[in-house]
Amino acid sequence: MNARQDTHDSGLGVSFIISTVIHLVVFLLLLWWGQLFPPIMAVQETYYVDVVNLPVANPRAGSPIQKGNDAETPPPPPAPEPPLSMPPPPQPNARGRAATARKSEKTEKRDTSGDAAFAERMAKLENKAASQQEEATLEQLRKKLKATGSGRAGMPAGSGSETGSDYTAYVQSRLKDALNQTNDYDSNNPMVYVHLYIGTDGKVIRQKLEQSTGDKRFELAVQRAIEKAGDKLVPPPNHKVFEGRFRFRPKEVSRSKP
């Protein structure tokens, strides 16, 4: 009986070889599959952009917009398109027309040199009309810019004319916008020098009135402007406390060296 069992179990070795081969084949298939469809597991690198020190494309728009400002300022209105065709030259009145007709009758009799002079006059008139149109468009744009310039305090759409390429310019722009809203003074030409300290969280941690012409009303207006602008300032770069001296005038805020 044992001999019979041995005979029957001889197939076990063959089965083992077949099983091993099958497993190897499956393993190689999986390898091939993995090469055909490599798993996407690459860790994406995170890039941090210092938006405060980012160069600004349009300096008139102030510093770049920070996230967190809930109210977004609308984009500036597009410039009015210039007319496709030039306006027609002013039509002469009836008397003028008659005179012109008479003149034209006379000129018909003249030689062709009169036509050239007429064309030259027409070109001058057209040029004048075009320059007038351009001037009017520019004037319209300037008016709109003045109208939209007074943005909210701390918002980048303010009327600050600074480039905003550094944090001081950014703070200056915000202070100027805020001062436009809180502006109030008694004397003719008040002036205040304030030393500001802005913490790493963007809050004004200290303000020091260093010099003043003595206009208390203007000093209060400056204080309110600082409070207003200081609400929504972005943190200074490099996690350092910002320190700067500013000169306040009724419609002007400028940097001042100590």
Partner: peptide, 13 residues
Amino acid sequence: VLSWTIIMFKFFQ
């Protein structure tokens, strides 16, 4: 591997 060896062996047996 061993279980598949036994499966094949037993199947034929």
